[in-house]
Structures are given as structure tokens and as C-alpha cells.
Nucleic acid binder design. Structure first.
Lengths: 298, 298
DNA sequence: GTCATTGATCGAAACCCTCGATGCTTGACT
DNA sequence: AGTCAAGCATCGAGGGTTTCGATCAATGAC
């Protein structure tokens, strides 16, 4: 069954006249007649009663009419949905994100995204990078923003480099000095967060590689609490720069440069399944927005 | 766009494998591949990502999927609706009927019809024959059961011949006589019904043609009331036989034969629009039932 | 390595869709 | 009464598309 046949059926039913309907559909009258005959043959029932004045629906035609309309509408809407998706003027985007990304980077990104594509529905699933990777592999999310990871089935697009910066409360002795050494840091009370996350391993191995043993005094399971602890002068912390930009601007925390240590950072990337072909629709829209902006400049 | 393409898309989406889907659809794998390519070309977007393990939906494919399903369901349901209509196993039938038919003949007919086709919905519109004819011409009803009428756009199927019989109350002088003459009838108080209906003209012209002037004493606008008047001994009446069969059986009314007058009757027919092609579905079902039964034998 | 499985590709034959021209019927108008 | 216009059906030709069997290329399993 050709959709053109169904379409012809509807047009003729509407106009009650093959010639006019054919003209409206930009085909000749014999063509449309043939389509109707083919459709009637396939359905095994005359859909029209031929009269001198034109075509009238038979009972069977009347019975079929609503279904034909429904089918055409479905296809038309389907085409529109694809067009919308292609232009990313509508659709749905499901993102996965590591906690630090979800909390400190995504909001500004999504604000701009929502402004650019107001009709796209966005959902965010947060979890540690490994968990988010699993979501991606299970296709529960279309894109994920996590630290650099390796997996044969995914490809990565660099997003930004997230630096870990040393923050101290205002009035802390370090705050007055322009720079401090790593030994100075290790002698302070340090606040860490989330032993299960990659940050923990990263900071630990950082100190170990420098032959310094940090005096750990406190470990929180989230960054927000860690910041509060520092503000309450319970210690100092190495935190993602994106996570403390607000406090630094409000001067409730102070950043201190460490001179004799390499910059500590990890790359944040966007990952997607390699087998999904080239990005399209909402996914492509998000990737474009990401590419043309600097997510860390928040 | 071929429906076969949409169907193939759904089958492949379901199975994630062109070869299996092709087998299930009884076509070769290259055929199905070609259908998918054609569909993707028409929609201007890859619907599948080709992987080593088979076919995976792209985002676009996922977006199109529900619409494809909707379209296929609509067509499938449409086919089913036609099948139902053809076998008359379901559907709707709208009948028009003259009052006497509607009240005294249709109930038994519809009882049998409902038993034979329990899933057909039946609606009855009652009116004088002329009004019902108009309903038919306006396609408000599919069939009409009325007295014989002429109109270029309708065709008639004989239903039954309805005799007008003379009924008197039990104990009436006529009841004891085996037969009465027309002159006897004219001298009695006569009860007529419904001046606007064809019965009135028929009975009036009947008397006039015999050179008899009836003593009209009462005119009701419905048969049921007329019967009650006769039962209450306010007169005698010429009524459709089908309308008094119950009372004759219950002996609350008595039929009297008139010897010297021709039998008075009118033909009741089923009419339908001539331009509707051959009857199908629910209409054909009803006509078949009518044909194989004697509606007057109620 | 070899084999099985996957979808893509190819060439030939069949199919059918589309078109312009024409036929046929019927109602309207002179 | 006869012509005309308007309606759909039919026909034959041409062109495109679909379908098939065979084959290819890539890749993962054993």
C-alpha cells in the first residue's frame, strides 16, 4: 500500500471529484484513478460509489476514512518530528554528568542551551563518572560529561580542563602570602571530599608523588560541604576551580597559588557511544553549543 | 513512501537485524536493506546506525519510531474495520422508519438482527415516510423503511404488504357477523389517525372511491391512541394489521372482514440511495436478514 | 587462521506507476 | 432533439523502481 494511495483517497473523499483532487495533488486524473483502484483492490472493497456528479464514499469508504486520516497524520507528524530533531527545534536530550559538572558547570551551560533551543526537553542524570559511563553504554543517556575515560565503545570530545585550586578562608595566614610551598600545604589541616570519587585518588596520588604526607583531618562526601568546612576555618582544601568560583568572587574563600608543585587538573570530556553515527538533532545542537563556548568560564 | 518501508523499519528496529527481519517479512535481505535506504533517503536522515552486531536506532530513528508505529496501527485498524464492516461483525447501522413500521415491525426485526450481529450498533430515526425520505437523501440514515415512494435517486426493495383491517371492540354488533358491507362501515363512527400521514389519505380516498362518505368522529395522531379509542367503544377503525396483531390475539379487539370492498393495503419497502453502490457491511447484513424473513409475520 | 554472521552492493528481470489520448455516460443547455 | 460539458474509466508506451540471487567486505568467535 502506497501512502500516496491513502492520500489520494482522502483528497478525493474531501472533494468528491477525482479530477479536482488530481489537480490539487499535481498528478493527472488517470493516475489518481489508478491509485484509488489499487487501494480498493488491496482493501477488497469499493471505497467510492461512482456517480455522474463525482465520487461519493461508500459505507466501507466512510468506515475507512478515519483510519486513513490517522495514518496520514502519523506520518506527517513523524516527518515533522524528524525535521524538528534535525533543526533541534524540538525534541529531548538526556545528559549524564559527574557531580562536579552537574552542579557547577551544567547550570550555566543549560541556561544558554535552553535559551537557544527553547523547545528541547532536557534531562540530567548525575553520578560518578564510572556510573555515568554505564548509563551511556546502556543508552540511558545520550551524552555524558565526565573526566577522561577509556572504553572501546565510546568517543570523547574535550570539554574543558578542570584545575584543582587551593582555597583557604579569608584571614588565613596563607591568604596574606602571594605563594606557598607544597610543604606548607601538607602541614595544614586538609579537607577532602568523596573518597569514592576520582578526585580523592587524584589528590592523594598528587601528594604522594611529591613525597608529602597530607594531614587529613576531614572528609566530606560532597563539594558543597567541603567548601562550608573551609569557610568555617576547619581546614584548607584542594577543590575544582569551577566549584569555588562563586566563593572566590564573593571573597568568602581565597585562592592561594602553590609554587613548587605542578598544576593539578583533570580533563573533563563529553563522551558518546561510538556506534551512534554522526551526532544529529538535539545531541548535535548541544555539542555545537559546547564547542563554541568555554564551559570553565563560569 | 511505501507502507512496506515503514513496516520494514519497525521490524528491523524491533529485531536489530536486517536478515532476521527480512526472513520474518518473507523478503530477501537486500530487498529490506533497499527499503530502509529508500526510507532514510526520503526522510533525509539515517534511521539506523550500522554496527558489526546489527542495526541500532539513531536518535532520529528513535524519534520516528512512535509515529511509524502509529501509522501502521492506523492502517491495520482500518483494514480490520473494513473486514468487520464486510462481515458485519461490527459497525453501525442507521435506519429510518415510518411510525407504523418503527413501532410494530421493527422491534421483532431488530431483535433477530441483534441476535445475529450482536456487535452492530443500531440507531432508528422515526418520521413520516416523506420526512424519512429526506433523511435518506441527506444521508442521515442508510436505509429507510417506508411506504412505496418514487424518487430518481433511490431504489426500493419490497419489504411486505401491509393490509388495513377493520377492527371493532369485542361485543360490537359487527363482531357477531361473519362479514359486513362497506355501507355498514360508513354508517358507524369511524376513528382515523394522523391526518398528516399517508394512511389518512389512503383511507379517505378508499371511501370516496366507493362513493361512501364516512362519519368521522375522531382523529388521533398515533395508532396506539386510536386502538385505545376503539377498545373504549368510541368507534371502529381501519388500522394496519401489524399494529393490531397483539390486540387481536389478546381478543381486546376483533377483526371484521368487509365483503364488498377491495382489500386495502399499501406496500412497505426498504429504500436506499441509488448512488451508494452495492450494499456492503452492516447495510448488506440488514438487507439479507430482511430478505430471508417475513417482517409482517409478527 | 578459519568460519560464521553481519549489512552493502550489483546486474538483470519483472513489475507498476505515470502520462497523454481517448472512450463512455449523463445531465445541462440551446 | 441535439450538442456540449463534465465526470470517471481505459489504453498503450515509456520510464523508473523494486526484487531477487549472487557476491563482497568487515568483524567477531572459536
Amino acid at each position: 500500500m502506497l501512502l500516496a494511495q491513502v492520500e489520494g483517497f482522502l483528497e478525493v473523499a474531501r472533494r468528491g471529484n477525482v479530477s479536482r483532487a488530481a489537480e490539487a495533488m499535481f498528478v493527472t486524473q488517470p493516475t489518481l484513478t489508478a491509485r484509488l483502484h489499487a487501494l480498493e483492490r488491496e482493501l477488497g472493497e469499493p471505497l467510492f460509489a461512482r456517480t455522474r456528479r463525482g465520487m461519493r464514499l461508500t459505507d466501507a469508504g466512510r468506515a475507512f476514512l478515519p483510519y486513513a486520516e490517522r495514518a496520514m497524520r502519523a506520518v506527517r507528524d513523524g516527518r515533522q518530528a524528524l525535521t524538528d530533531a534535525r533543526s533541534a527545534s524540538a525534541g529531548r536530550l538526556v545528559l549524564g554528568a559527574a557531580p562536579a559538572v552537574s552542579t557547577y558547570v551544567l547550570p550555566a551551560l543549560l541556561q544558554r542551551f535552553a535559551a537557544a533551543y527553547p523547545r528541547i526537553e532536557v534531562a540530567v542524570r548525575t553520578g560518578h563518572s564510572e556510573d555515568v559511563l554505564q548509563m551511556l553504554l546502556r543508552e540511558e543517556v545520550q551524552l555524558a560529561m565526565v573526566r577522561t575515560m577509556r572504553h572501546p565503545d565510546i568517543e570523547s570530545i574535550p570539554l574543558y580542563e578542570e584545575a584543582l585550586v587551593l582555597v583557604v578562608p579569608p584571614g588565613h595566614p596563607f591568604a596574606k602570602r602571594s605563594t606557598v610551598g607544597i610543604a606548607d600545604v601538607a602541614s595544614e589541616r586538609l579537607i577532602f571530599f568523596d573518597r569514592t570519587s576520582s578526585y580523592y585518588e587524584l589528590t592523594q596520588s598528587f601528594f604522594l608523588s611529591l613525597g608529602v604526607t597530607p594531614r587529613e583531618v576531614m572528609e566530606l562526601d560532597n563539594i558543597e560541604s567541603a567548601k562550608k568546612m573551609v569557610e568555617r576555618r576547619l581546614g584548607i582544601a584542594l577543590l575544582p576551580r569551577t566549584a569555588v568560583s562563586g566563593e572566590l568572587a564573593a571573597k568568602t574563600l581565597t585562592q592561594v597559588a602553590v609554587t613548587d608543585a605542578p598544576a593539578m587538573s583533570q580533563k573533563i570530556v563529553v563522551i558518546r557511544r561510538r556506534d551512534q553515527g554522526r551526532p544529529s538533532g538535539t545531541v548535535a545542537a548541544f555539542l555545537n553549543l559546547v564547542r563554541e563556548s568555554d564551559p570553565a568560564a563560569v
